[in-house]
Computed example of a mutant assay.
Amino acid sequence: MIMGDYPDCFIIGLPKAGTTALYNILTQSSEVFDCPVKEPNFFLPEGVTPAGVRNQHDYVGLYSEAKDNKLLSIDASISYAHFPDSLEKIVKVKPDAKFVIILRRPEKLVLSQYQQMRYGLFEECESFRLAWVDRITNGQPASGNYQFARNYPESGAVGSILEKVMAVVPSDSLKILIYEEIFSQESKDIIMLSDFLGIQPFEFRMKKVNTRKEPASKIVHRLIIKDSWIFKLFRLLVKKIPFISPGHVRRFYDKKMVKPLDASLSDYGELEIEKYFEAEKRKVEDLLSKKIPSWWC
């Protein structure tokens, strides 16, 4: 792979662990570049996701403005943590890169991942219960995008994932955050993260993103989600209508045609998910040499 002006920092995961919220916080700093493509997925294997930047010149070009203005650049492709080979490629082409990973209580993590997969129409099982039993029985789905994210017993294996990340990324280049800690009112993690990234502490607003939801109509959803050709065509048409934008349509859609998901862990007690992930949670505590009380209460 060609050496080049790659991003300074990589937020490598985990999906549904507050990575978008963290990215939104960091880009409020005047020293951080807000890339037009948050998740380029350049270093991922082919076929993992339906979207991404595959051309090396185009990928590096995403961050040219950051270089010109001496701003910190961030690739927030949050699936990298699941692919050690991808991390090895990054370390090779950008030896001084900084890596950030957020871990979340695995029981809640996988439920949130399931809900996201349903919203994106990647998950066919009508309930988390059915999806969990299917993956326990049959393993990772054999086809489709985000196969790794839909394999919930493995995507929630936070200890094993972290162990593989730590085996590839140098310890002084890796910042490990805990979802339940970083977004608490008394958290000082953002200040410490600023120091880790070499930027000054800054004031920020915390915004809740990616709340639990599912489409009221799958047919309409397929037409309106951003990757559909109809939505892309609409983007071209509304450029000539100054008071309407794709954002207006998306917000109207989310308000009127998306219903909230109210499922919680208590609804799936018989699956014994908490027991299933006990060893993974203890592995994280051992790797970090600290207890995480919020993962056990």
Rank of each mutant, 00 (worst) to 15 (best):
R205P: 00
I224K: 01
I219H: 11
V258T: 13
L271A: 09
K239H: 11
R251E: 15
D195Q: 15
H248T: 02
K207Y: 06
M257P: 02
K281Y: 02
L271D: 04
F204Y: 15
E270Q: 06
I225Q: 15
G198T: 04
D254R: 14
R222G: 14
V220C: 05
F204D: 07
S194I: 05
V258I: 15
E272G: 01
E278G: 02
E203G: 08
P242V: 10
P201S: 11
A216H: 01
L197C: 11
E186Y: 02
K213G: 06
D227P: 02
F243G: 01
F243Q: 10
G247T: 03
R205I: 01
K255L: 10
D227S: 10
S194A: 15
V258Q: 07
I191H: 05
K226I: 02
K213W: 02
G198D: 08
K275H: 04
L193H: 11
Y253R: 05
T211K: 14
R222S: 15
V220I: 14
A216C: 08
Y276A: 08
K188N: 11
E272Q: 10
A216E: 15
E203Y: 01
R212C: 06
K208N: 08
L233K: 12
E270F: 00
R235D: 15
I241N: 07
P201V: 07
F234L: 14
I225M: 15
S228D: 07
R250H: 02
D195I: 03
P246A: 04
L233G: 13
V238C: 12
L265K: 00
K226V: 05
K256A: 07
M192K: 14
R235Y: 00
F277M: 08
T211V: 08
Y268K: 08
L223N: 10
F252G: 08
E214F: 00
W229V: 11
I219F: 14
M192R: 14
G198S: 09
K255I: 04
L237T: 04
G198V: 03
Q200T: 10
R250W: 05
K213I: 13
G269I: 05
I199S: 03
P215G: 11
G198I: 06
E203T: 05
H248C: 04
K239D: 11
Q200A: 13
I244W: 07
M192H: 09
K259C: 05
R235N: 14
